[in-house]
Each structure stands twice: as C-alpha cells, then as structure tokens.
Amino acid sequence: MSFKIEKIRDILKEKKLDGFLVSNATNVSYLAESPITDSYLLLTKGKNILLTDFRYILEAQALKNFTTERIDVSFVDTIASVAGKLKLKRVGFEGRSISYSVYVKLKKALKKTVLIDTCDIVEKMRAVKERSEVGLLRKAVKVTEETFFYIRKTLRSGMTEEELKKRIAIYIKSHNGAEEAFSTIVASGPNAAKPHANATTRKIGRGEPIIIDFGVKFSGYNSDLTRTFYLGKMDSKFRKIYDIVLRAQEAAISFIRPGRIVSELDLAGRDVIKNAGFGKQFGHALGHGIGRDVHESPKIFKTAKGHLLMGMVLTVEPAVYIRGWGGVRIEDVVLVTKKGCEVLTDAIYK
C-alpha cells in the first residue's frame, strides 16, 4: 500500500474522521499514481475507493489496491450511496475544489454524515518531493534548457511577440512526451511592465527589455523559467535594474535551507529590491512551489506561514516592473537539499 495513503489514514485517525473525499484532480492523480481524470477518491480506514464514470472505468479497475464505484447518475448520488453503505459519520473534504452548490447538494444527500473541510492535507504532502519526482522534474528542466538555447538562437528584432510564442510552443512539443506547462509569456518593451502579459502583434525591438516566461510539462511534472533578454548594447538603466533583480535572487537562493521560515525567504529577496528604491515596483510573491501543478505549496510571500523542508522544489522569481519602460524578471527552479539547496536550472544563462 502506498505510504502516501497510509499517511493520510494517520491524519484521519488524528482528526477523528471516518473518511476523506479527494476531489482535486491533481491530488487524485497523485494518490492513485495514475493520470486518471474526472474521478474522485474516497479513503476510509480500510478502503481506497475510486469513483469514476464509464469513460475511465477500465483504467480505474486496472489500478492496484483500489476498488471502483461507477458514477452513473451523479457524483453526489454515488458518494451518498457509498457513504451510506459504509456508515461514515464524519468525512473530510477538500473545500477549495468543490463549489458551494456541490457542497450544498452533498450536505443534503449525506443526511447522516457530517462534512468537515480539511484543506491542504494532500497539498502539504505534495510539497515534499520523492526522489522519483525530482527525477521527473529534472527531465522537464532538461527540455527547458534546450528550449532556452533555442530561444537565444531564434530571438531577433522585428519578429512579433506572438510569432516567438508560437515558435517556443512548437519547439517544446517537438520533444517526445513534452508539452507546454502553461501559456508562454513573451512581453517586450512597455509590455514587460505587465507581470502576466499576453503576447501581442507588437514587434520586438532592440534596446528594450524582453521578458520570456515559459515552462515544460514532462510525465506530469512541470518546470517554470523566466529570463529577461535585451537585443543590442545594454543601456545603463537596464543594466542597473537587471543587477538589482539578480542580486535579489542571489540573496534569496543563498537563504534557502531546511528549517528556514518561508516568509523570511520572501523578505530575503524583497528587501534587496526595496533597499534599492524599487519596492513598489515588485508587487507579487517571490515564488511558489512547483511539481504536478505549476503553482503549488509552498506559496512564498511576505506573510506566508511554515518552514522550508528538504525535498521541497520552489521557484524564485524577483522582479521590477516600471510602467512605460518595461521590466526585468529572473526565475529559477530550486530544490531544497539536506544542507542548503540546488538550483535545478543553474545551467541556463542569466
């Protein structure tokens, strides 16, 4: 039996729950160790029940250590029937992944069962990666490296943001088993002042910042990388801003090691930018966890709770955005190791 599920059973015992309903698609896939979609998982003290419909019933039945329940009418009716048969009195559920309307229907259908919101049980487990997961992340990073060097070779003035974005997508998909982790950001000149700018028909020019943020998904695991390019001889303003952002990232990465407080990691990078006079131009979090989802636990911001743990994989992405001019963002993927950290994307030039 998977140690992940046994760990959840320990949590159920601690919280005095008879069962735990997993509805977040990524969490279901993680616990079932399968890419199965549109399914739910009900874990009890002695059963692992996968609830799915006709489309995926054969895949579900092929999984070891799981029993299956087919959803014929609705998910709510099926879970109510199973909970009734097992006489479940207290069931935890993932409040963030179930809409209020579905919650109301569940509460009505599960008349003899109390529903307890138990968010982040699986997310906290997913935050610490197993060795095999880190291996898959390294493979995603490898394709990311190759894509970066393709961008360096391809990028030229006169091409549009949309054109470059399409070329990046085609290149990533040319690698067997790889796909885009998210919609690539290509933002040039003033557009680079928008953290999540959409690529436009604007032509990329010389003498301006060009932010490119892209990621690769490989075997269910994601990378996330940002580099800021500049065509031509760098002017003093770009060089100054770039140096500030790079120093902020270096300060943050040097802070990373097990036991450190997550909010202090954010401040380690943020304070460099603030002390340089650009605090108001850096308005988002310093980074985030990454794995099966591009954005997952831990969230790295100035009021975040919790500590860094060995095995966590994070992004560190300080930035400065100046309206009318553009911006600079540098992002890398970092693994928390036993005594410090390893920058998984360290082979990619900054």
Rank of each mutant, 00 (worst) to 15 (best):
R9V: 06
E14L: 08
G19R: 05
F20Q: 03
A32M: 04
S39H: 06
L41A: 04
L43R: 03
T44C: 09
T44Y: 08
F54K: 13
R55L: 13
R55Q: 08
I57P: 04
I79R: 12
A80I: 05
G84D: 10
L86Q: 00
R90P: 09
E94R: 09
S97A: 10
K105V: 00
K112G: 12
L115F: 08
L115V: 08
E123M: 07
M125K: 03
S132Y: 09
E133G: 02
L136H: 10
L137Y: 08
L137H: 00
R138G: 00
K139C: 02
V143D: 01
T154L: 02
E161Y: 10
K166H: 05
A169V: 11
S174R: 14
N176V: 12
G177T: 04
A181L: 08
F182W: 01
T184M: 00
I185W: 00
G189H: 08
P190T: 11
A193E: 14
A197D: 02
T201M: 11
G205K: 14
E208N: 04
P209A: 07
Y221F: 15
N222D: 10
S223V: 09
D224C: 12
D224S: 13
K233P: 02
K233T: 14
K237M: 11
K240L: 12
Y242M: 01
Y242W: 12
D243W: 06
I244K: 03
R260N: 02
G269D: 03
I273V: 15
N275E: 13
N275Y: 12
G279M: 06
L286H: 13
G287F: 06
V294H: 00
E296C: 11
F301Y: 04
L308C: 12
G311W: 07
M312A: 09
P318C: 10
P318Y: 05
A319F: 00
R329C: 04
V334K: 07
V336C: 01
G340A: 03
V343I: 15
L344M: 15
